[in-house]
């Protein structure tokens, strides 16, 4: 589903990731871990085409990213749900609209959107907050809105960048359960985190990064 081969990315001559090679199979749930600046976010950005690799090749669900046309990028992105580290919620829109936007972009009709969004909000336990605005929500609730928005379009890949960054352990455990549920439905999940609790005893593959290098792979 995701294949990186000798990928390097520079930011102003400084390599953010160096010669990275790894693969993630369809339906798999993997973790990327490492300290801040290890290159976790850069790898996710390359997957959702926010950054282009300077060297190496990346294949996402049969799409070779070095050959993809710019006009095709939106359609690839619709297959990738992203839980952004900084949430990227639209503060002037309520929870419902924040989630619905992912479906409006896909050209779905209002009636279907209403039904589908409420279903997803129920799944993340936020149905009662549908009319609330992001700034009125707690960090955990905002995180769940972002997850709802990421999965509402039924992507084949879900990427999460530090999804439990500022959350207490109970809320983090709830978020982790949610990811497992999503993965159990067949979605490939890639989680970048420095929180060991998130992957401990999961039995999932964990890629360890440090200073932009892939320094190891282990089972969580």
């Amino acid at each position: 589903m995701i294949h990186f081969s000798n990928v390097t990315k520079f930011y102003e001559k400084q390599a953010a990731v160096k010669n990275i090679t790894f693969s993630v199979e369809k339906g798999e749930m993997v973790f990327m871990t490492g300290p801040s600046g290890a290159g976790k976010s850069t790898l996710l950005k390359i997957i959702y085409l926010s950054e282009k690799p300077d060297e190496g090749s990346v294949t996402i669900a049969e799409w070779d990213l070095s050959k993809i046309k710019e006009s095709s990028i939106p359609f690839l992105r619709r297959n990738i749900g992203v839980v952004f580290q900084d949430f990227r919620l639209l503060d002037n829109r309520n929870v419902f609209d924040n989630v619905a936007i992912a479906l409006r972009i896909r050209g779905m009709l209002d009636g279907e959107i209403q039904e589908w969004v409420m279903e997803i909000l129920k799944m993340v336990n936020l149905r009662h907050k549908a009319d609330s605005f992001p700034l009125a929500l707690s960090g955990g609730e905002q995180q769940r809105v972002v997850i709802a928005r990421a999965i509402v379009g039924e992507p084949t890949i879900l990427l999460a960048d530090e999804p439990t960054g500022n959350l207490d352990s109970d809320t983090a455990a709830g978020i982790t359960r949610l990811f497992k549920e999503i993965n159990a439905r067949g979605t490939t999940v890639v989680i970048a985190t420095h929180n060991k609790e998130l992957y401990r005893n999961t039995g999932r593959r964990v890629f360890r990064l440090d200073g932009g290098n892939m320094v190891g792979e282990e089972l969580g």
Binding site: R77, R78, V82, R88, A102
Partner: peptide, 8 residues
């Protein structure tokens, strides 16, 4: 954000 969500 729209772009990252797949807007054309």
């Amino acid at each position: 954000t729209f772009k990252l969500l797949g807007a054309t």
